[in-house]
Amino acid sequence: MLDRLARSDDPDLRASALDALRIDARFRIARAESASRTGGRTTAPVTFARIGGAPNRTIYDQEHGSSQTLGRVVRAEGQPETDDIAATEAYEGLGRTYEYYWSTFQRDSIDGQGRTLHGCVHQGENYPNAFWDGRAMFFGDGDGQMLTRTTAGVDVIGHELTHGVTQYEANLVYSGQSGALNESVSDVFGIQVKQRALGQDVTTSDWLIGADIVGPALQPALRSMKDPGQANPHDDQPATMDDYVPGGDVHTNSGIPNRAFYVLATTLGGNAWDAAGPIWYAALRDARLTPTATFQEFARLTLRNALMIYGQTSSEADAVRGSWEAVQVPL
């Protein structure tokens, strides 16, 4: 999407997109380097070195710098909130994400071992993005056109921290179909963090990613898991393999597995974390999932895990089959 906005006729929008692309290139390199050092499967999803169940968060102020040093500490775990709304939102969003993973999977932080969650607010000057660089989350304040304050989206925070979970599990390579899966997995769990925080089930959720942080150029949201390609005027996501974009950006083709999860969750009903989320999580943690996995390989693992968890004749397994059929990924 940034590539398309960088070709906009609006000079301000074009300049903002180009600035974001330059910063994004740096953080993608940093994340790849971090993944190569620390990537791989956790030996256990639950911490044994501590009791677990409570996050350890530290929030830093980047003071509009563009370096990837953490910055000045403005709030540590248990300290009262400050008058900085971005710091408060980051602290609460990190906590909501931790609570989702602990309550649903008894996973103690992104590494399963109680790792401290670092959040860095006020990244860059009017930077329209948020990212996980392999060790911390960085939040921009937005340019007012593409994005507003990125800490306002709890689904965005859940999305970015899930990149950390993926790094510690399958460590999916950030290109091609494995890269699109990497992005999709972050959307899948980011939307569940949002749904849980707002008390929504699969019928009351809007299934929109980034609805709380988009500016006028990207209204009403960054992505739609229900209707990929329809989130905003610049949305180019395909919804099925018929429209798969060879060589496309990872954020583009992620619409296909996103819709598969939406179909699964809404077919099963209730809360997305009742059955659909655990099936996706089991596939992510499956030792057979390789870093270069294709959509089909991931789809087959979701079915295998559904069969193992719920049984050969279960409605859950049937729903998994139907979800991938809906997006034309063969099992």
Rank of each mutant, 00 (worst) to 15 (best):
D12R: 15
R14G: 04
L18N: 14
R26S: 04
I29K: 09
R31D: 13
S36P: 00
S36V: 11
T43D: 15
A44R: 15
P45L: 15
G52W: 04
R57H: 12
V73N: 06
V74T: 04
Q79S: 13
P80N: 14
A86K: 09
A86P: 00
E89H: 03
Y98R: 10
T104P: 00
I110H: 13
G114I: 01
F138R: 13
Q145A: 10
M146D: 03
T150D: 04
T151C: 10
T151V: 04
H159T: 01
E160L: 04
L161P: 09
V165M: 13
E169W: 07
Y174C: 11
G176M: 02
A180M: 02
V185I: 12
V193W: 06
R196Q: 15
R196C: 09
T203M: 01
D206A: 01
D206E: 03
W207H: 06
G210H: 03
Q219S: 13
P220Q: 06
L222R: 05
S224M: 11
M225C: 10
P228S: 02
D235E: 02
Q237H: 11
S254L: 11
L264V: 03
T266H: 12
T267P: 06
T267N: 12
Y281A: 10
L284F: 06
R285L: 14
T294C: 07
L301W: 13
T302M: 05
A319H: 04
V329S: 09
